[in-house]
Amino acid sequence: MITVEHLSKVYGSTPAITDVTFSVEPGEILGFLGPNGAGKTTTMRILTGYLPATSGTATVAGFDVHEDSMAVRQRIGYLPETPPLYPDMTVEGFLHFVARLKGVAAGDRPQRVQSSLERCNLVERRDTLIRKLSKGFRQRVGIAQAIVHDPPVIVLDEPTVGLDPRQIIDVRNLIKSLAGDHTIILSTHILPEVSMTCSRVAIINRGRVVATNTPDRLMEDLSGGAGYELEVEGELLVAQERLQYLAGVKSVTALTVEGLPPHRYKLRVISNPGTDPGRDIAATVIGAGLGLYEMRRVQADLEQVFLELTMADAPADPDPSLSNEPQNQSPSQEEAA
């Protein structure tokens, strides 16, 4: 449904994104994950026709975003980080206005608006002025305007930023309900958002995509999968030497832990993907005459993967496309569309 190949964007001599390549299958939710300034918003804006790329190609539903920009826009619903809302319009009036801008036939508009209101749980707020809505409901209106023309692709840029925990859960459930009928790209730097919402993840750092896979496979492949933490008494070097040569063991690391009795220490043993050497680990420690006081399973998480992939380099420069952006202004008709 979406194919991005070798996409780059340069502002003067400053690269915002470089050689970005990924794809999104029909009905999939792709989490586009990265630290602030990594290039997420620049990529989203290129995909939606808001910015031209310096080089590379991107297609949406078979249409090139540069050569067939209007065809792409007709097939995309876009929610920028700041929802493009008119605060003095009612929710229903605004959705009718957006439906007309997006080319929905006059006879189909009432049904499309009603469907968007229902899917976003806005029926009881249909006659409310947008400026009187809470931030969570304004975010729902932003999603409603993105789906009012029933596009095959939805692009959401930081859809839960600034929301309270209850609002985050509501918006997250709404996004998950849209999967299958729509292909969704969800741009965020919030790790729980990805693990709880997305079926696949693309991690971008300093303008480059550094990993793409399902959350589970990323955790397994990049952080070594499951492992064990041990509290052992005896010779540290003996324990490390015996354990590191066990089949299925990827690494053995001594942990710095304060407050342990003399001659006790903790070890983290990470296993190779697809293996579970837990039984052999316990047998080896005991067989070496060492005291085993504790052994517990540990599981890599997405936070470890994210830090591993994004902390190796110095922090990225801010995304140039975000500079000098006007705040708290009503959108133009082009932005609302």
Rank of each mutant, 00 (worst) to 15 (best):
M1W: 10
M1V: 13
E5D: 15
H6C: 13
K9V: 07
Y11I: 07
S13L: 13
P15W: 11
A16T: 01
D19R: 01
V20K: 03
V24W: 01
V24Q: 01
G27Q: 04
E28G: 07
L30K: 03
P35S: 11
K40Y: 02
T41N: 12
T42N: 07
T43W: 03
G49W: 07
Y50E: 13
L51Y: 06
G56I: 03
T57A: 05
T59E: 11
D64H: 04
E67H: 12
R75G: 12
R75W: 01
P83E: 04
M89G: 05
M89K: 04
T90A: 11
V91L: 04
G93Q: 08
G93R: 02
L95H: 04
L95N: 01
H96F: 13
F97I: 05
A99F: 06
V104E: 10
A106T: 13
R109V: 09
R112I: 09
Q114L: 14
S116I: 07
E124G: 15
R125H: 14
R131F: 10
L133P: 02
G136P: 02
R140A: 03
V148H: 01
V155Q: 00
L156A: 03
D157G: 06
T160W: 04
L163Q: 07
D170F: 13
V171C: 08
K176Y: 10
L178C: 08
G180I: 03
I184W: 08
T188V: 09
H189M: 07
H189R: 07
I190A: 12
E193M: 02
V210L: 03
R217P: 12
E220N: 09
L230M: 07
G234T: 06
L236I: 12
V238E: 07
Q240K: 13
E241A: 11
Y245H: 15
G248R: 06
S251E: 10
L255C: 11
P262G: 09
R268C: 12
R268I: 10
R279Y: 14
T284H: 00
G287W: 08
G289V: 04
V298M: 09
V298H: 01
D301T: 04
L309S: 08
A312T: 15
D313W: 14
D317I: 14
P318Y: 13
L322K: 10
N328L: 14
S330F: 13
P331H: 04
Q333F: 14
E334Q: 12
E335P: 00
